[in-house]
Structures are given as structure tokens and as C-alpha cells.
């Protein structure tokens, strides 16, 4: 028994190592292709600088141009905008998922807003909220809120009917069923919806910082575009990628901590 466990742990570890190795390999290949087409001069530096150039540019950004402040500004905006979206979308999604009436009432409006591009809200947002952080958070909010609401509603609608029937069989009233079955049963799915939408939230940072921003990763990228500093654009993109990846990892890790009972996993 003990030996088996050890063996099992060994394979589990190996699986993890392999997973990390493959993950790294993907990036290595990407950088290799990048090197191949830039160092050989196949692509002009204006369109795509070499890795070394980007690395030098990145160091310059951090050391001489306070890039860290831009990163923090962007994190703050995304975080605040997304938290507000989540705080409203989760209860709203639960309500839509539970009751037909509220779905009929709110559902179409949410779906309607969903199809409006977040960028189109910029003029309105500036008009309503000025050009400060709040306006940027609003864009993040508009970009994530409708989808998050619909994702949460969908999770709730998929609660196992049998579980609800068990509660009903003990004479549970609707309020109790929601509290004891619907919500606990939906939490893992809601957490996953948050993970997915937080990732998408990062893709809105450029849109949010497109106009009237004096800081932020998006601002750096737009400035770089103006002055043709291609290297800074790439740095910005890489940093956004890394931050998105970290967000995802935090959600994944906490998922495992919060929902140790979940059977969710890889199919193969």
C-alpha cells in the first residue's frame, strides 16, 4: 500500500514535470522562430526587433521609464473594474439562472449589451466619468460584465435536478434550496467563469487605456506605436501575456484549494 502510494506520487510528479517541460518547450520554439526570422534579417527590425533588442528595450523601460508604475496602474484598473463586474454579475447571474421571470426581464438586456463593442463606450464613458481611472474601470466592466452574467446564469441553470429534488424531498423551501444546493453546487463553475472572464479582462486593457491615459501598459503600447518603438510594443504585449497567465494560474490554484472535491480534470 505504502509503496503503491509512493509510486503513484512519483508518476504524479513526473506528469507535472512533463507538463512544465512541454509548457517551456512551447515558448522555446516560439523564441527560436522569432530569432530565426530576425537575426537573419529576414524581417526588418522596424516590424519585428530581435530578442536582444527587445530585452534591452525592456530593461530600459523598467530602469529609466518607470514601467513598473504603468504595470501597477493597469493591474489596479483591471482589478477594480473586474471586481465591480463580478460583484454585480454573480448575484444577477444566479437570479437569471434560477427564475424564468427574471431571465425574461434581464436576460435580453444583458445579451443586447453583450454585442456592443466595449470600445464604442469610450466616448460615453469619458462624457459620464471623465478621463480618470474610473472611466478605464468602466470599460473593463462593460467588457466583462455581460458575459460574466450569462456564464454564471448558465452554470446555475445546469445545477443537477436530482440534487434539487433531494432537498425538496426533505421539504426544503426555495430559499433553502438556493442556499444549500444551488449556490454550493454552482461555486466551482462560477469560479471558472471568473477565471475565463478575468483573462478576457486583460485583453481590454488596451481598449481602456486607448484614450486619455497618462499611465498603464496600454498607454505605453500606444505611445510606442506613435514613436515607432516596436520593441516597446512587444514588451507590453509580453507583459500583458505574463500577467494574464499569472491571473489564470492564481485562479487555477485557488480552484484546487477551494474545491478539493471537484472531479474536473483533463479528459486525456
Amino acid at each position: 500500500m505504502h509503496r503503491h502510494r509512493k509510486l503513484h506520487l512519483y508518476f504524479e510528479k513526473e506528469r507535472k514535470t512533463r507538463f512544465i517541460l512541454f509548457g517551456i518547450l512551447g515558448f522555446v520554439i516560439l523564441v527560436a522562430i522569432w530569432s530565426l526570422i530576425t537575426y537573419t534579417g529576414l524581417v526588418k527590425p522596424l516590424f519585428l526587433p530581435t530578442p536582444t533588442a527587445v530585452l534591452e528595450g525592456t530593461i530600459d523601460l523598467f530602469v529609466n521609464q518607470n514601467f513598473m508604475n504603468d504595470i501597477i496602474a493597469s493591474i489596479y484598473r483591471i482589478f477594480a473594474g473586474f471586481v465591480i463586474a463580478a460583484v454585480i454579475a454573480i448575484p444577477l447571474g444566479i437570479v437569471i439562472g434560477i427564475s424564468k421571470t427574471s431571465e425574461a426581464f434581464v436576460g435580453p438586456v444583458v445579451s443586447f449589451v453583450r454585442y456592443m463593442p466595449a470600445a464604442a463606450f469610450i466616448p460615453l464613458a469619458i462624457l459620464w466619468l471623465g478621463i480618470g481611472d474610473v472611466e478605464k474601470m468602466f470599460i473593463i466592466f462593460i467588457g466583462t460584465f455581460p458575459y460574466l452574467t450569462l456564464l454564471v446564469a448558465d452554470v446555475v441553470m445546469n445545477v443537477d435536478r436530482n440534487h434539487i429534488n433531494v432537498a425538496r424531498s426533505f421539504g426544503a423551501k426555495n430559499k433553502t434550496i438556493i442556499k444549500e444546493v444551488v449556490i454550493p453546487s454552482s461555486l466551482p463553475g462560477i469560479w471558472d467563469s471568473l477565471r475565463i472572464m478575468a483573462g478576457i479582462g486583460w485583453t481590454y486593457i488596451i481598449v481602456a487605456e486607448l484614450v486619455a491615459a497618462s499611465s498603464g501598459i496600454g498607454h505605453v503600447i500606444i505611445e510606442a506605436q506613435r514613436y515607432l518603438l516596436t520593441s516597446n510594443i512587444i514588451t507590453g504585449l509580453i507583459v500583458i501575456g505574463i500577467l494574464g497567465l499569472i491571473t489564470d494560474l492564481i485562479f487555477r490554484y485557488s480552484y484546487k484549494r477551494f474545491f478539493p472535491y471537484s472531479i474536473k480534470g483533463k479528459i486525456l
Binding site: 443537477d160 440534487h163 429534488n165 424531498s169 454550493p184 453546487s185
Partner: peptide, 13 residues
């Protein structure tokens, strides 16, 4: 009345 269902209905959480 106590009901036992055919499907597995223990709450996973």
C-alpha cells in the same frame, strides 16, 4: 417520506 433515487445524488461538495 424519504426518497432514495436511482441516480447517485450525494452532494459532491
Amino acid at each position: 417520506r424519504g426518497v432514495v433515487f436511482q441516480k447517485y445524488t450525494s452532494f459532491p461538495w
